[in-house]
Design a protein around this nucleic acid. Structure first.
Lengths: 196, 196, 196, 196
DNA sequence: CATGAATGAGACTTCATTCAT
DNA sequence: GATGAATGAAGTCTCATTCAT
C-alpha cells in the first residue's frame, strides 16, 4: 500500500513487537500485575521505548485489544463451513476450528476474561464477541434448522459459552486431543437433539 | 462450642470484617489492583491491622477463599429439590436457586474467574467448584433420566457453565427478572430435549 | 531486705525476665534490629507487658545496661589474685577469670561494642569499663613492677583491649580451651617482658 | 581500559555516590538504623534510585564492603616502610600511616565492628582484615627480629588490635596529635621490648 | 498484673512515567 | 528511533506504642 522507509518499517515492527509482548504478559499475569518492565523485557526493548509508541500502559492495553478483534477469524470459520454436508459434520468442523482459534488466541481470550470484570470497556468487547460468534453460527444454522430465532440463539449462545468455558478450564491445560474430540462430538450431538 | 470472651469475639468479628471487605474489593478491582489500604478502609480499620490477622495480602486472599467454599450452599440447593415433581419443575427451581446464590456470592464468583487465570491454586478451586456442582446435579438427575454417565455429565457441565457465563456477562448487569426467567425456561427445555 | 508480697515478687521476676531477654536479643541482632515483639517472645510474655515495666524500648536498653555494670565482677577478679605468688601466675589466673567473665557476659560485651558506635552514652560506659579494668589491674601490678604510671597504664590498657578483641573475634567462636591457654600464656609472657 | 560514554560515566558516578553515602550513614547509625531515605538524601538523589543500582538495602551494604577492601591500602603502608632504618623508626612510621588510614576509613572500620557481631559474613571480613594486617606486619618484621613465628604473630596481632581499639575508643573522639604520638611511641617501645 | 487488639508513622520496595543523551 | 538514568507517588509490610478489657 504505502511506501514506508526502512525506519518507518522498523518502527512498525517494534510497535507490533510491543503489542504482542503486552498481550502475552497481560494474559499471564493480568493487566494490573504486569509491569511495563515486564513488557519491555518480553519485547526485547528498553523500558522507555514503550512511551515512544504509547501514551501509557492503558493505551497499550487498548492497542492490544484493537489489534485482535477476532472479527476476521470468526468469519473465516463460518466461510469454511461447506454446504452440502450434514449439519453435524459442519458443526463439528466449525467447532474444531473454533478450538484451534481459541488455542492460537489463548492469551487474548484469557485477558478478555480476566480484565472484563474490572474494566467495563473490556467487558463490552467480550459481550460483543459472544454476540458476534452467536450471529455467525446463527446465520449458518438458521437456514438448516427449523426453530424460532430466540430459541436457536439461546441454544447457540449456550453452546459457545460452554465451549469457551471448557477451553478455559480444561482443554488448555490438558491438551488431550482425543478427549477434546469426544467432548465436541457429544456436545454437538446433544446440541442437535434440541431441535428434534 | 467454644467459650469465647467478649474480646475474642470482637477479634473474630474484626477478622471476618476484613475478609468480607477483601472479597468485596478483590471482586471489584481484582486482586492485584486492590491495595491493602482499600481493604482496610472498606473494613473501617487502620492499615496495619490487616497484618495482625493475616501474614500478607495473599494470605488474606486465601482466607477469603477458604471462608467461601460454597460447598454448603450447593448442597442445600440440591436438598431443596423436592421429589415427586416433574424433572423440569425441579430443574427450573434449582437453577433459580443457583442464580440467587450466584447473585449473593457474585463477588466471590467474579474473583474466582478473574484470578483463576493467573493463579494456579485459585484455578484448582474453580475446577473443583464446577466438578462439585456437576456432581450435585448428577446425583439428582441420574435416577430420573435414562442416559449414560459421561453423556449426562457433559450435558450438566455444559449447562452449568452456560448458566454461570450468562450470569457473568448478562444477568448481573441487566437485572431483568423476566428475561432471566425466559432464559432459564428455554435453557432447561433444551437441556431436557437432549434426553428424548 | 524488704518484705515483698507475692505479687511484687512476681513483678520483679517478670521485669528481670524482660531485661535478660532484652540483653540476649540485643546482643544477637543489635538494638535497632530487635523488635519489642522479639523481646516479649524471648521473655515468654505478651507484647504490651514491656510497657508496663518500661517507658520505651530505649528505656529497656538502659535497664539492661544498669543491671550489668560488671563493677562487682571485675573487683572480684582482682580480689582473687592471691598475694605471695609470682606476678606471672597471678596475671594468668586473672586473665583466665576475665575470659570466664567475658564468656558469661558475652551478650553484654557484644552489645556494648555494637551499640557504642551509634550511641554516645553507651560509648561512655564502654570507655568507663576499659578505664575501670585498667585501674583494677594497675592497682595490683603497680606495687609489683617497677614502671612509670603512664607506661604501665598504657601497657595494661593494650593488654586488656587485646584480650577483649581476641575474645570477640576468635575465642567466642572457636571455644578451644588449649588455644586460649596458649594465647594467654604467650601474651602474659610478652606483657611481662615489657618491664625487664 | 573501557571506553565509557558520558552517560555511563555519570551512572557509575551516581552508583559510587550511593555507595559512599551508604558507608557514611551506616557508620554513623548502624545498618539497621539507617533508612534508605537517609542514604538517598545523603547522596542527593531520590529514594527510588537506590533500587535502580542495587537489589536491596542489603545488596548496597555488600557493595560498600566490596568497594572498600583495604587490601591495597594496607600493602601500601608496608611498601612505604623503608629498609635501612632501625625497626623502631619503621614501626612508628607504619603505625602513624595506619592511624591515618583508620581516620580516612573510619566509617568503614566502625561499620565493620558494629555489624560484625550480628552478621556472620561481615565478621568473616573483619577476621580476614586482622589476619591480613598481621601478615603484612609479619613479613616486614620476621626478617628483622629473632622470634618464633607464632610468638611474633601473637605479638603483632595484639599490637594491631590494641591500636584499633585505641582508635575506636579514644583517638577518633579526642583528635589530640600529641597524645597519639606519645601513645604510639610508648606502645612501639613496649612492643620491641618483647623481643629482647 | 497481664493481654493482645488496634493505631499510625514510617520502613523497604516497586513502578509508571519522563527526559537528557 | 532508542536508551536507561532519574523521579516520586504509592504499595506492602513492620513496629513501637497505647489502651480497653
Amino acid at each position: 500500500m504505502k511506501n514506508l522507509t526502512n525506519r518507518q518499517l522498523q518502527a512498525l515492527e517494534t510497535k507490533n513487537k510491543l503489542i504482542d509482548a503486552a498481550l502475552l504478559v497481560f494474559a499471564k499475569k493480568g493487566y494490573s500485575a504486569t509491569t511495563t518492565k515486564d513488557i519491555a523485557r518480553e519485547a526485547g526493548v528498553t523500558d522507555g521505548l514503550i512511551y515512544h509508541y504509547f501514551k501509557s500502559k492503558e493505551d497499550l492495553l487498548w492497542a492490544v485489544i484493537d489489534k485482535h478483534t477476532l472479527n476476521h477469524e470468526l468469519s473465516k470459520i463460518a466461510a469454511d463451513a461447506g454446504t452440502n454436508e450434514p449439519v453435524e459434520t459442519i458443526l463439528i468442523r466449525m467447532i474444531h476450528s473454533l478450538f484451534d482459534l481459541l488455542h492460537e488466541k489463548a492469551g487474548l481470550i484469557v485477558m478478555f476474561f480476566g480484565e472484563s470484570q474490572r474494566n467495563a470497556a473490556v467487558r463490552e468487547r467480550l459481550a460483543q464477541l459472544i454476540q458476534q460468534g452467536t450471529q455467525i453460527f446463527y446465520q449458518l444454522l438458521s437456514e438448516r434448522m427449523d426453530a424460532q430465532e430466540l430459541y436457536l440463539k439461546i441454544a447457540i449462545r449456550n453452546l459457545l459459552t460452554s465451549l469457551v468455558m471448557y477451553f478455559l478450564t480444561d482443554d488448555r491445560y490438558n491438551n488431550d486431543v482425543n478427549q477434546r474430540k469426544e467432548y465436541i462430538k457429544t456436545t454437538v450431538h446433544q446440541f442437535l437433539k434440541m431441535f428434534n
